[in-house]
Design a protein around this nucleic acid. Structure first.
Length: 743
RNA sequence: GCUGAAGUGGCGAAACUGGCAGACGCGCUGGACUCAAAAUCCAGUCCGGCUCACCCCGGGUGUGGGUUCAACUCCCAUCUUCAGCACCA
């Protein structure tokens, strides 16, 4: 109900502004006719696996299952390979609220006195990490702002290194660590595990158990941001356990510390305090040994040298002595692989996508649980799985969605066997619907397919995707991921969905703050349109500044463009509403023709490059020039109205009518300019002496250099500044300036 | 903290590839019109200096350096602000 009300308001406002959307393509992600296809795409993802050999997703039916596997083992094997899978994941759990919180919400509730802790919860995950390499590589072929590409690449965070195994002293197990600096392994003097690391229990000795457990429960209460901040004091405790450094063969202590995250790498690191700042700080604080292995480093600065000049480290089997870092890394990696204590590895910062929510709203998963606890996907003909009507959509408090409390909805049957089954009660995040809406626009009312192949071929890819900069990483990555899965499975034909991307900036309140109800600085378009009209509102939004900039609203500014539109009106229309008597069928003067063609050129180019603010400036210059003329060439007025029409369509249509055209201007061709007619025949040349502007002279266009010098040296001002000094150099920039260097 | 972006008059901004800093608009000042006001029109408006009328001179694009005949633009350092940081979407 609330969504429908919001949609109605947005539509009314969009129509009021005269934005020319094709409403026959309207979609709504909360409409079952839409979200049945969101569920359908989920099924495609669920019923697919990633083939690392072919580097693409394939239907799960094409997964080669080891011959020995049957029954439950076979099921587990398949589940493990799906692109959607269940996993225990840490979430911010607030018991009083009975719900999971976003990182950004945690601080707010803790301040109010609620307790929030990290708790493991079974969640649906999407295997976006399988696509990490392609998501990064394919960014090279899109026309996006370089900053956004950079952010995405850093988010994906590819790093190359080794995974090395440190055997435990008191057990057969070993700890895997990931490092990009295998050459420093001789300097690894201790290991650090994330507090949630599964091996913590095993390595912790009885005498340290209490301290370790205490530390683990403390770190549960910290957010990830708090844990990894470099400016915060590092904390950690010893577990009592030891492991063997495969390079030095020495036993080294195992610690846990919350600056190590379970979600990155292997959740464990080898600490090299001689060459890493964080390790150095940590070792200093807890008096752990520090060994310098890369010469040229400076321990007091804890320099992590990328280009160390040589390595002093050796054991009986391998020596890295004297090798530069890059060589040392290669040699070390080979040795680790040969000894089977490590392997070359590429890790990404990117994590799999936690895709389930415990909320009422959101698309239900088209999945059921059978009596034996196994998961089963519903067949496509059972879609959509509708949300039930509820009295209240407050969380159940148990951590489950409110859906879990509705027995009539939860209890169902396996459509194949007729046996009892329970529905998945988690729902999808709001991202799901927005991951593919651009595809549905192409074929919004298709009842049998999510998108017809023909229409997909005709329209895709998207020429220009405009959205807020806040989507730089998440939405744009999620949508690209879904698109690539659909591509692999043969449902779309392009590897990337969005060819060109532009981020429009946020319009702030008049006080320069983000608009919000609580601040009371929200500008309602309804009020603005009522006061100044839709054209003024549109025009001002475009005139405020560059499209991509964040900039504050200004009511004065709207008045400014409103005045401009009034001037445009008075330029063409008399007070009694008739066509202005100054408008005549007459040729343009040379100056008028130049200004007209310059204006056509500027507006045309600026529209193409989305520089609307400067296009409007040029139109203002045009009007300032023509407004009060005794006689105005009709041709100039008509052309101007056409240029103005995309910016202020309502007034432009009215003026077009006043100019005697009974039909809309919408189908008129866009004005063309003649480059020759934009040119001036004389221009102002700037004359600099020692880098300072000393004079300006009117000279003919494309004046000859010798001719120019003659005029310049004759200039009184210049003569005074030269004053018999020696001329060392003369720089001439054609049709711009001449620069004299004197001594 | 990490990643990315941005800092230019009183304000929003412009300046295309290194070539006159401040176009255009707002605001402000003065004037015209009016009994008066609104609206509109005209003139002025980066800061400072002068024999501040015309000229002319000095300084100026967050800060400190550098490259260059010439720097808002390029390089190094630094400060500040904004966006994102995976359950706001």
């Amino acid at each position: 109900i609330t969504t429908q009300e919001n949609v109605a308001t947005f539509k009314r406002q969009i129509k009021m502004l005269g934005l020319s959307y094709d409403w026959s393509r309207e979609i709504n992600t909360t409409d079952p006719n839409y979200y049945r296809w969101t569920q359908w795409i989920f099924l495609k993802i669920y019923n697919a696996w990633y083939d690392p050999q072919l580097h693409k997703a394939r239907p799960i039916s094409e997964l080669l299952i080891p011959s020995g596997l049957i029954g439950r083992e076979k099921y587990e094997f398949i589940q493990k390979h799906r692109l959607a899978y269940l996993s225990e994941m840490p979430v911010n759990w607030c018991a009083e609220l009975g719900t999971v919180l976003a990182n950004e919400e945690v601080g707010e509730w803790v301040e109010k006195g609620y307790t929030v802790e990290r708790r493991m919860m079974k969640q649906w995950m999407l295997r976006i990490t399988a696509y990490a390499e392609r998501l990064e590589k394919d960014l090279n072929d899109v026309d996006w702002p370089p900053g956004i590409i950079e952010m995405q690449k850093n988010w994906i965070g590819r790093s190359e290194g080794v995974e090395a195994y440190f055997p435990l002293c008191d057990s057969k197990s070993k700890i895997s660590v990931f490092t990009t600096r295998s050459d420093t392994m001789f300097g690894a003097t201790y290991l650090v595990l994330a507090p949630e690391h599964p091996l913590v229990d095993l390595v912790t000795t009885s005498e340290y158990r209490i301290v370790v457990d205490e530390y683990r429960s403390q770190s549960k209460r910290k957010s990830e941001l708090e844990r990894t901040s470099l400016d915060k004091e590092k904390t950690g405790v010893f577990t009592g356990g030891y492991a063997i450094n495969p390079a030095t063969k020495k036993s080294i202590p195992i610690w846990i510390a919350d600056y190590v995250l379970l979600t990155y790498g292997t959740g464990a690191i080898m600490a090299v305090p001689g060459h890493d700042e964080r390790d150095y700080d940590f070792a200093k604080k807890f008096s752990l040994p520090i060994v310098e292995v890369v010469s040229g480093g400076n321990i007091s600065q804890a320099a992590f040298l990328e280009d160390g000049v040589g390595v002093n480290s050796a054991n009986d089997e391998i020596s890295l002595d004297g090798l530069p870092t890059s060589e040392a890394k290669k040699k070390m990696t080979k040795w680790l692989e040969f000894k089977q204590v490590g392997k070359h590895s590429v890790k990404y910062k990117l994590r799999d996508w936690l895709f389930s929510r415990q909320r009422y709203w959101g698309e239900p998963f088209p999945l059921i649980y059978l009596e034996d606890g196994t998961v089963k996907a519903l067949p496509e003909d059972k879609l959509p799985v509708l949300l039930p009507d509820v009295e209240s959509y407050k969380p159940s408090g148990s951590g489950e969605s409110v859906l879990a409390t509705i027995d009539s909805w939860v209890n169902t049957v396996d459509p194949e066997t007729g046996k009892p089954a329970r529905r998945e009660t988690h729902t999808m995040p709001q991202w799901a619907g927005s991951c593919w809406y651009y595809l549905r626009y192409l074929d919004p009312s298709n009842k049998t397919e999510f998108l017809s192949r023909e229409k997909e071929r005709y329209w895709m890819p998207i020429d220009l995707y405009m959205g807020g900069a806040e989507h730089a990483v998440l939405h744009l990555l999620y949508a690209r991921f879904w698109h690539k899965v659909l591509y692999d499975l043969g449902y779309v034909s392009t590897i990337e969905p969005f060819r060109k991307l532009v981020n429009q900036g946020t319009i702030l309140g008049e006080d320069g703050q983000k608009m919000s109800k609580s601040r009371g600085n929200v500008v309602n378009p309804d009020d603005v349109i009522k006061e100044y009209g839709a054209d003024s509102m549109r025009l001002f939004e475009m005139f405020m500044g560059p499209l991509e900039d964040t900039k504050p609203w200004s009511t004065r500014g709207v008045e400014g463009v409103h005045r401009f539109l009034n001037r445009v009106w008075r330029m063409i229309v008399n007070e009694d509403g008739s066509l202005h008597e100054s408008i005549k069928d007459m040729p343009l003067t040379g100056d008028q023709e130049r200004l007209l063609h310059q204006t056509i050129k500027k507006v045309t180019h600026d529209v193409e490059s989305l520089d609307f603010n400067t296009a409007i400036s040029q139109m203002m210059i045009f009007v300032n020039e023509f407004l009060n003329l005794e006689t105005k060439p009709r041709k100039a007025m008509e052309t101007f109205v056409l240029l103005l029409s995309p910016f202020a369509p309502h007034i432009a249509e009215e003026l077009w009518g006043k100019l005697g055209y009974p039909r809309t201007l919408a189908y008129e061709p866009w004005p063309q300019y003649d480059e020759l007619k934009t040119a001036v025949d004389t221009l102002e040349m700037v004359i600099q002496v020692n880098g300072k502007v000393r004079s300006k002279l009117a000279v003919p266009f494309d004046i000859d250099d010798e001719e120019l010098k003659k005029i310049v040296f004759a200039d009184e001002n210049i003569k005074r500044h030269l004053n018999g000094k020696q001329i060392l150099k003369i720089v001439i920039v054609k049709n711009k300036l001449i620069s004299l260097v004197v001594k």
